[in-house]
Simulated scan of single mutants.
Amino acid sequence: MPGVLPGPEEIDRGMELNERGRKVLEEVVDTYIQRPVPVGSRLVAKSDKFNLSSATIRNIMADLEEMGFLVQPHTSAGRVPTDMGYRYYVDALREKGFGMVEEKFLASLHKSFKDTQDDINRLLNDVTAKVSSMSHCLAFAVPLRADNTTLNRVQLYRYRGNRTVAMLLTNEGLVTSKVLYTDFGLSQRDLDRISDYLNSEFSSCTIDEIKAVVMEQMSREKELADVLITNAMQICREALVFPDCDIIFSGVSELIGLPEFADQVNSIARAIEDKHTIIDILDGLNGGMQAEVLIGGENPESGFRHLSIITSEYRQGDRSLGRVGMIGPTRMDYSNAIPLVEVMARYISSAI
């Protein structure tokens, strides 16, 4: 199941890494993240982290390959991390923590966007653009889902003929407007009375809660003696139908411009353009503000097998409002990417 990822205890079963093995694996991953060419034992041995010969390093790397953490693409080449190697590396990063990296990112976001917090969609666009430029990966945000927001106020306006304009403002700053077609003639005074009724009945209720009440009321429409209430329920039902969720992207060119994707530009672009697939992947995750990481083959969709997704929810209390995250190569710089995604979520949650 997407989102239920193997932890260190599952990866290590029957193949526990000793201290030297862990350090060599970490060095190979760090080196490959910085420069995507196979890593040789001689290069690892030059690191000041080791006091080991190149031959000893080579034997350790051979063991790591046998255990599934590394792979040798060509007989005469060095080795590169596998998805399993990256998973071990990411889980080890979590155990160590990210130190002051998160606070540095958070301060940067507060400084950059203190004037855009009243417009949630502008904020999401600005934050994803900033994060993409900082990470050189694709950043994304799933905007507020209207169904998850709470109603602040609804106002109805008479338009042309039998048309009515419904404007909804949520407590999270989402503003939507919709033209409704009604088969009953209502004056502006009637619409004002309906607006007052809906606001008094449903203010601070979530859209989902309002829909449930409206459907229950409509199911016993004949019992509603007040024609105005009946009209209010019909208008409310029509006004609360929203389009499918969209995704805000920033940094597509950053992603497809990476050297490992030079011969995969079209397939990577197609995968990113399929927003419904991305939404399906995100919907299968567990949720929460701690970043979830899908690495390569852990992604359930074949188009994402060469990519990693890091994502976190932004929330209001215990209620999920949307998601932010990054998509990049499996060799993305997880030590910066994971805290950056978590900070994105924390910052947007605090701004709403």
Rank of each mutant, 00 (worst) to 15 (best):
Q34F: 07
V293L: 04
L123I: 04
T150F: 05
V165L: 13
V101Y: 07
T170S: 15
V175H: 14
C245F: 10
L168G: 02
L228I: 09
M218I: 15
L321E: 06
L186D: 08
T75S: 11
V293M: 03
H74V: 11
E260S: 09
V175T: 15
D12E: 15
A239K: 00
S112A: 14
I120A: 13
N266Q: 10
I207Y: 01
Y89F: 15
E209D: 09
L151C: 05
G257H: 04
L186G: 04
A55V: 14
N162T: 13
S108W: 06
R193L: 14
G97H: 06
A345Y: 03
T170W: 04
L174Q: 10
L123G: 00
K114Q: 11
N148P: 06
S204Q: 14
D118R: 10
P339K: 04
R237Y: 13
N59Y: 11
D147S: 15
A62D: 15
P6H: 05
E238H: 09
Q316K: 13
D274T: 07
Q290S: 15
A166S: 10
L285G: 07
N336T: 11
G296Q: 03
V142S: 06
M218Q: 10
M134I: 07
N18K: 04
R122E: 07
R163C: 10
A225T: 12
L198E: 02
S133E: 11
L25T: 01
D126A: 10
